[in-house]
Structure formats: structure tokens, C-alpha cells
């Protein structure tokens, strides 16, 4: 090993240590705020329990929508050859740059009572603000782009020769998507979904403005944290820790190699 290589590796290590220390210090500080034995008591408050249920229910639905609609949409965007594809991909990323509060106002001006589609929705007997459907919409709107973006990249990186080979062997397009593209892109899809999930479960601004903060209906865990800050810092911190635990567990599961797909042939992404 030359000296230059040694210095380079040392710098890499330093950068990695700095990254970990900076990103984890606030989380560690948060955990130190409340003694672990006080956590169960603080979390047993009914407001926390109902917010947890609201968060779970709305995020499960939003993530299902993101996966079921986002995956085929990303597949088309990744493999389709048409003009304006880069522009379309950029458009999809626009919700990412909106500050969450602006995203909330945007949703209100589209689907709110006086919004673009407000009258049409009202004629259909639908009123979205202050309902769980609005929470689902807010989460889907804010988190969806993270998944679609990653899914497009995952599908676009696949080797198309395999598709052609399958076609030569008589496989239909549906079968190619299901049996070849999905398993091969699985790692990228899971990574993208993990990011979208984490973003969605912590969603605050868009939910607050579009769905409102109605106890037991639209008050999610992040909204409960904000409300609790005025009552009791300890209990707000406890809810924050609960959010961390849920997200951490889901992210970990998403990164574990899947046990259910023995025919996997792709190499894991990353692994330097």
C-alpha cells in the first residue's frame, strides 16, 4: 500500500466517522432525554395510542397505493422509449422539492372544498379534508415520488437482453414483468420503498394542512408529537422515539435479503 493510498483510505474513514457522528448524535441525544423505564408510561396515553393506529392504518394504505400504482408506472417510464421522457421524470420529482406546508396548500387547492376538483368531489358526495382519506393522499403525494424515482432507476438498470431472450422463448410482456423484471429489480425497489415509507411515516406539514389534526381520525404520530410539545416535552420525545423505532424496524426489514425469493439471480446493490 502506497502512502497516497493510505492517506486516501484515512480520509474516507474520517468522512464516514463524521457522517455517522453528525447524523446519530441528535438521535442519541433524543434517546437520552427520557429514561427508558418512563417510556411505556408515556406511550400508554390514549392520544398516543390513537395516533399510532391512525399512522399505521393510513401509511399501510398509502404504501400499498404507492407500490401497486407506482411500480407499473415506473416500469413504463423506465423501459418506454418516447420523446419528453426526461421532462416527465423531472415532473415526477417536483413534489420532492415542495416544502411540506406548500404541498399541503397545493393539495387543498386541488382537492379541498374550494379546490380545482372540490365541486366535482362534492357532487360525488366526497369531502376530503378532516378525513383519513386526506391523510392517505398527503402521505402518497409526499412519499410516492421517492419510490417511483428509485423504481424507475431500478428498472432502467436491468439488462434488456434477458427480456429479449424471454420473448424469444415465447414469454408474454406480463410474464416478463412479473417473472423477470420484478425479481431482478427487487433490491432497488425495496430500497426505494424503504425511503418512501420513512418519508411517509414522518409526514407532517402536508397532512396538517390538508387533512387537519382531528383526534382519532387524522392525528398521526408526527402531528401528536407537535401537539404534545405544548403539554409535555417528555411525552413528545417518547412519541418521537416510538416513530424512530417503527421506522428503524421497517427500514431494517426492508434491507434484509428476502427469504421468499429463492430464484433471485441479481447481485445485491452496493456492497463495496
Amino acid at each position: 500500500m502506497t502512502i497516497a493510498t493510505g492517506i486516501f483510505r484515512g480520509l474516507l474513514l474520517l468522512a464516514a466517522i463524521a457522517t455517522f457522528a453528525f447524523l446519530l448524535a441528535p438521535i442519541a441525544a433524543l434517546l437520552l432525554q427520557v429514561p427508558a423505564r418512563d417510556l411505556p408510561g408515556l406511550l400508554r396515553e390514549t392520544a398516543v395510542t390513537s395516533a399510532l393506529l391512525v399512522s399505521l392504518k393510513t401509511n399501510v394504505i398509502a404504501n400499498l397505493i404507492i407500490l401497486i400504482v407506482g411500480t407499473p408506472a415506473a416500469y413504463l417510464l423506465a423501459l418506454g422509449r418516447f420523446r419528453g421522457r426526461p421532462a416527465l421524470l423531472t415532473l415526477l420529482e417536483l413534489p420532492l422539492v415542495l416544502p411540506p406546508a406548500v404541498a399541503g396548500i397545493a393539495l387543498l387547492t386541488a382537492f379541498g372544498a374550494f379546490g380545482l376538483f372540490g365541486t366535482a368531489l362534492a357532487d360525488a358526495g366526497i369531502f376530503l379534508p378532516f378525513t383519513q382519506a386526506a391523510v392517505v393522499i398527503a402521505v402518497t403525494f409526499v412519499a410516492g415520488p421517492y419510490y417511483v424515482r428509485a423504481a424507475v432507476a431500478a428498472f432502467a438498470s436491468l439488462d434488456r437482453n434477458q427480456f429479449d431472450a424471454a420473448r424469444d422463448l415465447g414469454a408474454g410482456e406480463g410474464a416478463i414483468f412479473r417473472r423477470i423484471a420484478l425479481p431482478l429489480a427487487a433490491d432497488g425497489l425495496r430500497a426505494g420503498w424503504a425511503l418512501a415509507f420513512a418519508r411517509g411515516v414522518g409526514e407532517f406539514g402536508a397532512t396538517l394542512l390538508f387533512a387537519g389534526s382531528v383526534e382519532r381520525i387524522t392525528e398521526t404520530l408526527p402531528l401528536a408529537v407537535y401537539a404534545q410539545l405544548d403539554v409535555n416535552l417528555d411525552s413528545a420525545v417518547a412519541v418521537g422515539i416510538l416513530l424512530l423505532a417503527i421506522s428503524g424496524a421497517v427500514l431494517l426489514v426492508a434491507k434484509l435479503p428476502p427469504l421468499w425469493s429463492p430464484t433471485r439471480t441479481s447481485t445485491p446493490v452496493g456492497g463495496w
Binding site: I105, F130, I217, A227
Partner: peptide, 21 residues
């Protein structure tokens, strides 16, 4: 009534002005 509670007074204004409440 169905009550949405906001920590910021301006958010209450927004919710009413845009017809959510």
C-alpha cells in the same frame, strides 16, 4: 362537532379560508 386542532393560529385561518372547516 368534528374538530381539527392546530398549534398555529394562522393554520386555523387557512383551514377555514380554504373551506376545510
Amino acid at each position: 362537532n368534528t374538530v381539527a386542532q392546530y398549534q398555529k393560529a394562522t393554520d386555523v385561518v387557512t383551514a377555514i379560508a380554504l373551506g376545510s372547516a
